[in-house]
Simulated scan of single mutants.
Amino acid sequence: MTITYSCVANGRAVLAELALTGGSYQEAAAKVLRQALLKAEPTTIIQIGSYVYHTLFIDGITYLCATDNGLDTMAPSAFLRQMEYNKNGSRMVLSTVKSQVSDVKSIMLRNIDTILEKETETVRILTEEAGDPQATAEELENSKKMPKRTWWKCFKIVVTTLAIPLSIIIILLSAHVIPT
């Protein structure tokens, strides 16, 4: 006895299938699924052509396999039970994976929040340092004028420093206090 085809279906929709040998199993599987749904029994055995189709119906899911020997019913039954058992095992694996994905997601969200907080703080600091653009422009313009103002002040001090003694000398010369 060889299991040549197997599938898992929800109603008439085949969710997954595997054919170990060449052949057109899809049409026969569709007929078997239709008949199994009409019978609504937990297990059915239907022969189509040279293949015997065994089904197991649990919780709305149909497990189906095709064999080339109609006399053996134990091996296909065990195979279908194993398919159903693996589904329950995969639920546990799936829930574990979902839990891990949820944990990773929460860690990533915390990391993103931390990065956004740091970026917000950086933007706030830059904004405070930049201040008002108009004020910054005026400060730049004033800083350009500072050397001119400083030069003019220095020039006034030099002129005043030279003018006062020169005036005193001229006054003293004109008053003939200093002999010429």
Rank of each mutant, 00 (worst) to 15 (best):
V8T: 02
V177H: 07
D132Y: 05
I169L: 15
L172R: 06
C154N: 11
K144T: 15
Q47V: 01
I107C: 03
K156C: 07
S90R: 08
S143Y: 08
S90A: 10
S174R: 14
D113I: 01
E139N: 15
Q35N: 10
M74V: 13
V93P: 07
W152E: 06
D59M: 10
E141R: 13
M1G: 01
V158A: 10
T21Q: 01
E128T: 12
I58F: 13
A135V: 15
L166C: 10
R12P: 06
A16T: 12
N88I: 14
K153N: 07
T122A: 14
T120L: 05
F79W: 06
I125C: 03
M146A: 13
L37P: 00
I61W: 10
I45T: 06
N88M: 15
F79H: 08
Q82E: 13
A137H: 15
S50C: 01
N142C: 12
K98C: 09
L126N: 14
V158F: 03
E117I: 00
N142S: 12
K153M: 06
L56V: 10
V159L: 07
T96E: 12
N142V: 10
S167V: 09
G23F: 02
S174I: 14
I46N: 01
A175C: 10
A66N: 01
A137N: 14
T55A: 07
T122D: 08
C7A: 08
S95K: 12
I58K: 11
Q35E: 11
M74K: 12
T136K: 15
T161W: 07
V101I: 13
P147H: 03
L20H: 02
M146G: 13
D68M: 00
N86V: 06
V123F: 04
S174N: 11
E84R: 13
A75V: 10
L173K: 10
K148I: 15
T21M: 02
M108D: 09
V97T: 13
P165A: 08
L33C: 03
D68T: 02
I48C: 00
L64N: 02
H176C: 04
Q26I: 11
A29T: 05
V97Q: 08
T55I: 05
I157N: 09
N86W: 08
Q134A: 15
S6A: 07
I58E: 09
L56M: 09
